[in-house]
Design a protein around this nucleic acid. Structure first.
Lengths: 219, 219, 219, 219
DNA sequence: CATGAATGAGATTTCATTCAT
DNA sequence: AATGAATGAAATCTCATTCAT
């Protein structure tokens, strides 16, 4: 009846666009502040102030500060998962897969320092075993499933979900450590150079952990 | 006026002992809760409740929640520094010193998981550059000075304080990463095994960073 | 430009009709919710939601929530007054007038339960003496005047306005009591049966209160 | 061990007494304001202001405004129930029992006008059928049980709980009506006089409703 | 010294109202 | 005329801190 045809799913009126923009402003402001001073230490007012919006506006988009944080985490994890999933690259072997996994994580968090701090502050990854907070579980499970899919071709099926969890934890730990390390502003060249042996050691440990038969490949 | 006479130097009266015991109970309760749910999310009441004391009692021992946290951090850092300082061991070379540094950190934080979380949550180490919070600065500088003293014999003097800072940061990152990694309950044997190459890689990077002349030693 | 020509006196255009319909939808929704959960506990959004309209629309028809409530009360009182005024019936005597008064009230509120609750919740009638809220005063005075007119022929003039007020209050109390009583779903027959002596007692008390000379008439 | 013996149940220290006094001050202030301007229109600050206490103090005694209101209702109902239960008076017959019931209610609410308004405003009695609000249910059921006990000897057992409910509702309606009626400040003598026939009519209706066999006693 | 009732600053949250579309 | 996103004043509620006992 109207001119729109294929775009009915995204009826981007002016208002719609403003809503999206507002929501994004809130998320951005919150992310910056959360990673800067911590979730608890950040007040709603600071967020809306930073977003140049009224205090009440936040509550039109999120029911609470917690939900706002959950949205940030979900968003970060989603993008991380997309990165991990990659572009349907050739499979290679477990070693290459693990290397790609580490590189993806490092790359993602290097580009997204705030998300890195947010996830580690909320300690998504340290909470690997606990599994309490409802709002965070879902994105995290999505993440675990993706890791599982990546290594599936190279390990005997079915994989113990616990093993995936632990691998994820190890990867997270590696990234955390390495980024803290690199956060000291070492020259980029140095970073790469120091990364190579660390990554190699890490991959080797992970392969061993996963019981890779092809382990005996030359170090 | 009172009965104490010669023992004034160590006036361990009944009351004195109780004071010490009370203080310890508070510190323990606070440490456990802070590392469990975060400093901000922990209320004074929860702490005194856990310590089985009245709320007001906390304020007889610490002037504020912040001071309580500072006391915990100071205590943790003090013990860590004692560990680093060691028992007057033979000096050896930079490589050995760095290895000992890493081992000490790993050992300390493996034994003191709560302190680990507390320091990283308050992000003592991530704050390496920032240097804001007054209460935390002092113990941290103590720590940096100790690191500096350890490596002093092997690097050209005077050392750039920034370099020490960065080394500390790298060590912290390594520990953080490795502990997260080991936090997954890998068999102790596995842990040691996987640690060896990671540590080697780390030491190598650090030596390079510090400009160790003896760098060309076999990898 | 538009089709309207001769009918400007009753310009019931499409738009006009919609306006009226919209206003009615809002009033109905508000009445139901106000009587269901109380005026204060009802939000503008709930009302417009129930009316299947946008939130802003309410403000095109009423300048505020208070005005909306006042409109409801005014409307209810107007209809009640119309009922009281009756259809120019023969005057009879005070007893008959009072009986008619009670019957009219009972009938009206039996048919309009929501209005009953609204008026008693806002405690229009309990506020008989207070006389604060500006928006409500006017319809209430209209009501009092009508009561006064009804009994005027049978009491010495001028009537003390306070007496009218009190009579109104008594009538309201009677209705309130009787409706609560009848709210328990007694069979209609029972209700009528139990009403008769209560009403008689009430009328008798009221006549006495108004100093009806003809009081001694057979009960 | 200490001097207290029988009074261990009420260890009324100075502090304890203050707590009780504070709680009472809050309840009194709240009751007055709730009945004056309605529960919703009364703010926490107004209550604590009126009680001459800090805002936070209220929350040491009640977890929320709702709980405060529930406490008031419970208290009121408790006292009403005590009144109804009476002092183990001779049983008499149903008529006398009902008369006593009405008199007790009237007396109680005449003495406790604020409670009257509170209960009718929160519409405890109008909610007879609904049975929603958890916090209010319990005191209300206590009340119903007491009514049931009072009439038990005179009606065939077991009584339909619904019948008790309806009787309670009728009583409440009667009281509500009569008090509104008496609220107009009729001379006390007038009130008694006008009450007699109303009460008689009411009792008669109730007896009929309860199916009293001895109904045919002279009106 | 130990206590916990009281406090009030400041945080979160609600919602009547405005206004650009 | 209708809409609903945005607003901020005002409410509720939390909790570190004080202080009388």
């Amino acid at each position: 009846m109207n001119g729109r045809s294929a775009s009915d799913l995204e009826p981007v009126t002016r208002t719609q666009k403003r809503v999206i923009r507002t929501r994004k402003k809130l998320l951005q402001a919150a992310l910056a502040l959360f990673s800067e001073k911590g979730v608890d230490a950040t007040t709603i007012e600071e967020i809306t102030e930073a977003a140049d919006l009224g205090k009440g506006t936040l509550y039109r988009h999120f029911t609470s500060k917690d939900e706002l944080m959950a949205a940030l985490i979900e968003d970060a994890v989603d993008r991380l998962v997309v990165g991990i999933r990659g572009k349907g690259e050739p499979r290679g072997n477990l070693q290459e897969t693990l290397e790609r996994l580490l590189d993806t994580h490092l790359g993602f968090f290097r580009e997204n320092r705030d998300e890195f701090i947010l996830l580690f502050q909320g300690r998504l990854f340290l909470k690997l075993e606990r599994d309490e907070d409802g709002a965070i579980e879902e994105p995290f499970n999505l993440y675990l499933r993706e890791i599982g899919k990546q290594i599936a071709p190279f390990v005997p099926q079915p994989i113990d979900p616990l093993k995936v969890r632990r691998l994820a934890c190890a990867v997270a730990g590696f990234v955390s450590g390495f980024l803290s390390f690199a956060m000291i502003d070492m020259a980029p060249g140095e970073i790469e150079k120091s990364m190579v042996p660390l990554r190699a050691a890490m991959v080797s440990a992970a392969r061993s952990f996963l019981g890779d038969a092809a382990q005996r490949s030359p170090l």
